[in-house]
């Protein structure tokens, strides 16, 4: 089963990160690095990326077949997508365990979402 593990930031988590000392930040980054090493080693990791700041988002619409870009994200919400892990693992339980290793899960800012497949049982 493939899952997208979504990591969000909100103003509180952003403030906390900014208030961290160098040492605390290094410690936080090492948590990610350790998780990356483990998931690469187990063959479960397909991709993992951090996303640029929401202020750099271009919202795109099409008018008369031409794309038009405006600055800023689609939804006016406090939680903004900050990064993701794309994994393939044995079960939902395992995906939840992976999500629990992400530091943002301490603030309830991590989601696990199953990926749809082209597999279909006979009907």
């Amino acid at each position: 089963m493939k899952y997208l593990v979504l990591i969000y930031h909100n103003p509180q988590s952003q403030q906390l990160w900014e208030a961290f000392t160098e040492a605390q930040r290094a410690e936080g980054l090492e948590l990610y690095a350790a998780l990356n090493r483990e998931l690469t080693g187990s063959g479960e990791l397909i991709a993992a990326e951090a996303l640029a700041d929401p202020s750099l988002v271009k919202r795109v619409s099409t008018a008369e077949g031409r794309p038009m870009a405006t600055d800023g994200p689609l939804a006016e919400v406090k939680e903004q997508l900050a990064g993701f892990y794309f994994v393939e693992c044995e079960s939902t339980e395992r995906a939840i365990a992976i999500a629990g290793r992400i530091p943002e899960s301490r603030f309830g800012l991590v989601e696990v979402r199953p990926i749809m497949t082209y597999n279909g049982l006979d009907v």
Binding site: P114, I115, M116, T117, Y118, N119, G120, L121, V123
Partner: peptide, 9 residues
Amino acid sequence: TLSIPEQRY
């Protein structure tokens, strides 16, 4: 469902 063909059906 998690299956796209099944969803279409």
